Amino acid sequence: MPKDWFEWHDLYKTDQRLQQRLEIVREYIAHSLNFSSPGVIRVVSVCAGDGRDLLGTLANHPRAQDVYARLVELNPQLVERGQATIESLGLTKQIEFINGDATIASNYLGAVPADIVIVCGVFGNLADENELNRLLRNLSFLSKPGAFVIWTRGHSHNIPHSETVRQSLQKAGFAEVNFQLTATGDMGVGIHRYLGESVAEPKEEQFFVFSGIANRAR
């Protein structure tokens, strides 16, 4: 089992579930770009890893030059790898990678509210449903009205955790655009739109507590 998140990301080379999940996430990011208004598209990614979901989509997307993004990730090795990818794509003036705590609101100042919010690999690493709802309440600081929110949630012990997320998002003012399970049937990927209003100040400086560890990632 991986001992840290840098090692965990190497599982994308061999794990079909993660490969399938990434394919769907990229599909939803492309959809969000396609249906964004003309002009600048602002994107934020929470617990971004090495940014392979967004950066892999931008590599071949016609609106790549419209994207201005901030990716926030705590692991410095993942940030370094992501920055190398940004440089290879020629997007250094548009995309910044912050090596910092993605749970802290101040790391998003100047980049929000965004047109696209990516919260993949996050919900399964929260302690409980209360912590999920806390994070969802704070998404009003990250999201413009009508923003696309892309998320993932794995299942475990035959419990369909993604259904809980879908219900919680609806209660928090998000409309579902699409939802898919991976072919393995145990990882859900959703895309919603935010129906509420943005807020100038976050409800809390710390949005949520990321309690997961790499060798027990869900």
Rank of each mutant, 00 (worst) to 15 (best):
K3R: 12
D15V: 07
R17L: 03
Q19Y: 07
Q20H: 10
Q20G: 06
R21W: 01
I24Q: 01
Y28V: 03
I29E: 02
H31V: 02
L33S: 09
S36Q: 07
S36D: 10
P38A: 09
V43K: 03
S45H: 04
V46T: 06
V46M: 08
G49D: 03
D50Y: 08
G51K: 01
D66K: 00
P76Q: 11
V79S: 06
V79I: 12
R81L: 13
G82A: 08
I86N: 03
I86Y: 03
S88N: 09
L91M: 14
I95N: 05
I95H: 02
E96R: 12
F97R: 01
F97S: 01
A102S: 15
A105P: 00
V112Q: 06
C120A: 14
C120W: 00
G124A: 13
D128R: 10
E129I: 12
E129S: 12
E129P: 00
N130E: 12
E131G: 05
L132V: 15
N133W: 12
R134V: 09
S140C: 15
F141L: 10
G146L: 13
G146W: 10
F148P: 07
H157Y: 15
Q167H: 06
F174W: 02
N178V: 08
T182A: 02
G188M: 00
V189H: 00
I191G: 01
R193E: 14
A200Y: 03
E204H: 14
E205Y: 01
F207E: 07
F210L: 10
A217V: 04
A217H: 11
